[in-house]
Design a protein around this nucleic acid. Sequence first.
RNA 1: GUGGACGUAGCUCAAUUGGUAGAGCCUCGGCUUGUGAUGCCGGUGGUUGAGGGUUCAAGUCCCUUCGUCCACCCCA
Length: 417
Amino acid sequence: MARKLQSIRGIHDGLPAEVAKWCNIEDVARKVFASHGVSEVRLPILEPTSLFVRSVGEETDIVSKEMYAFEDQGGDHICLRPEGTAGAVRAYLQAGLTRAGAQRWFYMGPMFRRERPQKGRLRQFQQIGVEWFGVAGPVADVELLSMAQRFLNALGIEETRLEINSLGCIECRPTYHQMLVAYLQTCREQLCATCNERIEKNPMRVLDCKNKACQEQLTDAPEMVGHCCQACDTHFTGLKTGLDALGVSYTVNPRIVRGLDYYNRTAFEFVTDQLGAQGTVLAGGRYDGLVESLGGTATNAIGFAAGMERLEMLLADLKGHQLDVVVASLGDASLAYSLRVADALRQQGLAVVHAGGGAAKRQFKIADREKSRFVVVIGDDELAKSGLMLKDLATGKQDFYVLDDAIQVLSGVSMIE
RNA sequence: GUGGACGUAGCUCAAUUGGUAGAGCCUCGGCUUGUGAUGCCGGUGGUUGAGGGUUCAAGUCCCUUCGUCCACCCCA
């Protein structure tokens, strides 16, 4: 079939079955996050392009190749946000909250990156993000991670594992960088072409190269966790101790790296092997320097983002009723009455659709297809007695009720959220 | 951006060396104008993703393009 009009590549429609799962994820997020005192914020989808150049990093692919950036009619350079953290920091500063104490925020919404689409990767995708500002010690890291773990558990996603690492800070990372580059130079010949580029651009990226030949060369490579300064080391130890105390299981993976420039110290990922190459379901870390680099006073911060579509793929399709009642009317005489019955049931909070009359068989099939729990049959008899025939589709039982009694029976049975 | 696989009915898929585009499911109607299954009968539904080329003849071969999927890259 010719598709003359279609959505843009990598930008998909959210249809009812999918949106139902998103709503479920959002409900769980709101509930779990609220128990940690985290409040929802709604931030702009359009931001100044310079915001991401300054925060995410000019050299990152996200900024240099993947942003939907353009000049608007007034000549301003604006873009569709490729991620949420930078905008959150901007909003935090713009609202003047640097002296307002800790801020714990979450948001959900679309992000945009012009990548080649594949499994778990779209050009418009949804993220649920959490950003905590003004929280310094490792206790915040511990609580954020245990919250993330509880979020996944509450969704019923059990098969992820948590990997953590420390990325060091501006004190210790430069030294480590030099060591790493020096090491990589020694085996440069054996590393793949991409890794050779990474030595210049982002040497830590070599550590998580997927190429086996590269990984073989890296067995003796220096790791950040072994070369942290005292303060970073203490922080990382505090994180591990806290996770142990809460029974949050994790593995230290010294090869975890962050793609965005603003991260320091704690980096973490919840990963699964059920999503092919896009196995990261939820990831984040500390970004203590970002607020300052965007013009604010030095403010510690930590956060994460989870990909909605990736979470969704780990969830089973939702079952359950879409409707409480389908009203089937038989014969012209009772049609008006049946419409009024349908409306009366709706006023009781039930989800009701009128099947439109016609053959009883057809109307029952509609009820099945629309996943209704009950069918109310109304014909001449029911009209004459001012009542209705109520059939439970699961059990097949049906009984006659006068309208008030039927409402009584049906009250509180709504299966629809 | 690179490499590969794939686009035929609403869905899942057939169609021999190039030779009349089909099936199952779904849907709608009938058998049955008061009941969901099954059965039987019938109907709707296609410019074979789009555009161009080769040929007497193209779903099939060639080119272009759009899209989907997988991996690289990157990342949630």
